[in-house]
């Protein structure tokens, strides 16, 4: 039996976070764009002059993703050394 490199456990967790973020990003983007954008054009409202579906999906969506990435990287990502430790068993 050999043990999983401790750094790989961290790497695997962070890769899963990446997949989760991308899924969340897609749902947000898709939900607002096609949920609100499929109404007749006359019913659109406008935020800062932009159609509402676009503002929520693309402008707010981008800001939300940027904040999420900052928060997640700061609080959930761990620094690990990349070089091999010479004295590992």
């Amino acid at each position: 039996m050999e043990e999983t490199d401790w750094r790989f456990k961290i790497a695997h967790r962070e890769a899963k976070i990446g997949v989760g973020l991308a899924l969340f990003n897609f749902v947000w983007w898709f939900g607002f764009a096609y949920g609100m954008g499929s109404r007749p054009v006359e019913e659109y409202s406008y935020i800062f002059g932009l159609p509402d579906w676009f503002f929520y999906s693309c402008v707010l969506g981008f800001l939300v993703m940027a904040v999420l990435v900052i928060v997640i990287v700061h609080f959930f990502f761990t620094e690990v050394p990349f070089e091999e430790e010479e004295d590992s068993p």
């Binding site: 490199d5 750094r7 790989f8 961290i10 790497a11 695997h12 962070e14 890769a15 976070i17 990446g18 997949v19 973020l21 991308a22 990003n25 897609f26 983007w29 764009a33 676009f54 999906s57 693309c58 969506g61 981008f62 993703m65 990435v69 690990v80 990349f82």
Partner: peptide, 23 residues
């Protein structure tokens, strides 16, 4: 809208390949 699908590349590539790839 279509172009904004690219935001994901900003974090996805480095998170997926990430530390394991570097190691």
């Amino acid at each position: 809208l279509l172009a904004m699908a690219q935001v994901v590349t900003g974090y996805f590539v480095l998170m997926i390949l990430g530390k394991k790839y570097a190691i």
